[in-house]
Design a protein around this nucleic acid. Structure first.
Lengths: 131, 131, 131, 131
DNA sequence: TTTT
DNA sequence: TTTT
């Protein structure tokens, strides 16, 4: 079991890129407010989120900065090497499903939640995230 | 909501340190197997976990390398500066409760699970993790 | 581990009652939409939720029918006897924390989430729910 | 979001039945110990679990009474009518994935966890559970 | 680097 | 109705 559930707001618009084999990858940072923390409500964790394939495209088409979402996924620790040869590790949440808790700005009536899912092997991608 | 639930095995014995004000902090890496990933069961995420105060001490006294546990906590992104002045970010799971899924090696009879909890502000510590 | 996480809307205003020893208990039904189910978005599960003590009072003072919330708690199976002596079992979620995903109707500005928590033994109450 | 995560032991061997259209359904009760409850460790919740199709068959073939598992699923409230025309509601967890936390009795070496999954519409079955 |  |  490797389960992460986050409720927060997009700190920026999602970026959608494509791998060499043509798979879509969306990435964005989620601002997750801390409750109960010492510093009041102004403190947050800024957590990197990635989504693959169909889920990535739905993110690109439907999510914008500031929007509140619920992300369910797994926590992944990825190793990479910097340009000058240093080894680094980066943590990110690989989204399995995203529930929109509010509609995109300038949209029409609030028609309730949308829930989009990504199942199967895309949650364990065997390709590098581009860039 | 910032919730992480992991089942895995300790990749090493927990290290227990103390802050200047005397608070215990335990840290260890949890090896969480990937299921459904392309590379079979031999692939795992190695996830840093920290625990504070009473929970930290229970970890130090009861957990050893290889033991299987369930960790519930929150995902925290922490910023720090390296000795040569670079800014880095590190992700870690701040444990709120740990359930032992098996007893310590060389212990007696299997008397069932133990569940230890850490509540309140220790989950949002206002002190640095020592070292 | 006995963990339940629900996002839904209150199907009715919470009812707050008091045990003989004076503990507050709030109860309400949460309508949780099914996504991916065959019948489109019109299908929902109606799930009984109870909260104790301070959390109960916050529910009574801040939640109304239709409001969207995130509930974290545990699933409890409770046995009771009907007036004519039949044994029945009822399932309910005992809330440990509730996050308000939107403000009460007719409230002021949207000042962001509120998160309320109930920890410790109230999650395993040793008293009957009144009525 | 309708998410349930349970760790417990099978209170009995799973029963596997088949719907009229031939779908497998496994059902069993999970004994989930309460930690932190007033009555010590001897108190538990007995929670009904169902699994569909391939997941159901894997349960039937691999799980036995007393075995410890982790169940991830959704909480469903189902209505039915008794033989004498009374309306009743029953709660059960519809499993989406089950992780074996220990091997079947009389099995060989402990080769680590097994994780089995059930995705898509089987989690929202449109058929009745037989019997 | 960041959201409300 | 129930597990260790």
């Amino acid at each position: 079991m490797n389960k992460v559930i986050l409720v927060g707001r997009l700190a920026q618009d999602p970026e959608v890129r494509y791998t060499q084999s043509g798979k879509a990858v969306a990435s964005f940072t989620l601002a997750v407010n801390r409750f109960g923390g010492g510093q009041g409500q102004n403190s947050a964790d800024f957590i990197p989120v990635v989504a693959w394939e169909k889920l990535a495209e739905t993110c690109g088409n439907n999510l914008t900065k500031g929007q509140r979402v619920l992300v369910e996924g797994r926590l992944q620790i990825r190793s990479y090497e910097t340009n000058d040869g240093q080894k680094r590790r980066v943590a990110e949440v690989v989204a399995q499903s995203i529930e929109f808790l509010e509609r995109k700005q300038a949209s029409g009536t609030d028609a309730g939640n949308i829930d989009i899912n990504s199942f199967g092997k895309d949650v364990f991608p065997d390709e590098e995230i581009p860039f």
